[in-house]
């Protein structure tokens, strides 16, 4: 019924993609869920936005979204960046679904670069936009060979990059797209999230789907799957740590962005998850610079 309304209003099928395409993508998603961490090829479609702007995530979202879903879209943790606003607007138009900026209200969260600070629950699906899905690409440019390496679970050379980091920087300096082993089998690129977010992938109650539009791959981490970051025995995986709390909401143990305040070197560190920061401020938490006339209290644009 609401599908008919959407079609009438927009001249598009519900959620833009035709039903056959959605079925094909759903089949790829089901296969990805059945083989956690395995990259399933799919026939990525042209979308009304350039490849590299999240078309993989958009196609996954379009394939799973229903009229009753509530969609949240974040980019670098923020709901109000161009990409996030555009994708949210897209689904409002083609699917007529409700949208939100609040993590707790969302049933589908499409994301680029972050996992929300608020713990996810079993009724939510997190859809990642992925630019380069292949974690072995650094070592092996041939797709035929990387597929063989995955098939044979031949992952020893993944540690070469981590070795190089320690040799050159004294620690594993890879901070984004930090490779993980999923369910003890496939090595996976968790998309360019900070390694700070890697622990959130492990044993997560929500379903996590990854879509790479340009590279035509879909992969998944089913709920409550073991996700382990690669490391060395004597250099164990360690997420980033921040020395000071959020300047606006005072939160600690969250991922912070640096915001330049003026031309004299003034800066502050604020939550990258704007919804989380706003929620804490609304609950009365105050950071060092909250209420400062420079800041509106609406959070930091990045």
């Amino acid at each position: 019924m609401s599908e008919a309304i959407a079609t009438e209003r927009t001249a598009y099928n519900f959620a833009y993609l035709d039903e056959q395409t959605k079925r094909a993508i759903r089949r790829a998603i089901l296969k990805a869920i059945a083989i956690p961490g395995y990259q399933v090829p799919f026939a990525s479609r042209e979308m009304p936005m350039p490849r590299g702007w999240g078309t993989g995530g958009v196609q996954v979202t379009a394939a799973i979204i229903g009229p009753d879903d509530v969609l949240k879209v974040i980019d670098q943790g923020a709901d109000d960046t161009t990409n996030a606003v555009a994708i949210r607007g897209f689904f409002t138009r083609v699917a007529n679904v409700a949208t939100t900026t609040r993590t707790v209200e969302a049933t589908i969260i499409q994301t680029r670069h972050r996992v929300p600070e608020t713990p996810l629950n079993a009724d939510q699906i997190l859809v990642y936009q992925v630019p380069i899905p292949e974690p072995l690409r650094f070592l092996e440019p041939r797709e035929t060979e990387t597929r063989k390496l995955h098939a044979l679970a031949d992952y020893g050379t993944m540690h070469v990059k981590l070795y190089e980091d320690i040799a050159h920087f004294g620690e594993i300096a890879t901070t984004y797209a930090y490779p993980v082993t999923v369910d003890g089998r496939y090595v996976m690129d968790p998309s360019p999230i900070p390694k700070f977010d890697n622990p959130k992938l492990d044993d997560c109650p929500a379903l996590q789907l990854f879509g790479a539009g340009r590279e035509k791959r879909i992969y998944a981490v089913p709920p409550h799957t073991r996700v382990v970051s690669l490391d060395f025995e004597d250099h164990p995986f360690a997420p980033q740590r921040f020395t000071e709390p959020c300047a606006l909401c005072g939160a600690t143990g969250v991922f912070l962005d640096e915001v330049i305040l003026d031309d004299r070197g003034g800066r502050m560190f604020v939550c990258s998850d704007t919804d989380f920061c706003n929620g804490r401020q609304a609950a009365g938490h105050r950071g060092r610079l909250a209420g400062n006339p420079i800041e509106s209290g609406e959070g930091a644009d990045v």
Binding site: D154, G156, F232, E233, D234
Partner: peptide
Amino acid sequence: MAVGWRHYG
């Protein structure tokens, strides 16, 4: 590393 060494040192 390919044969399973996981101790950097």
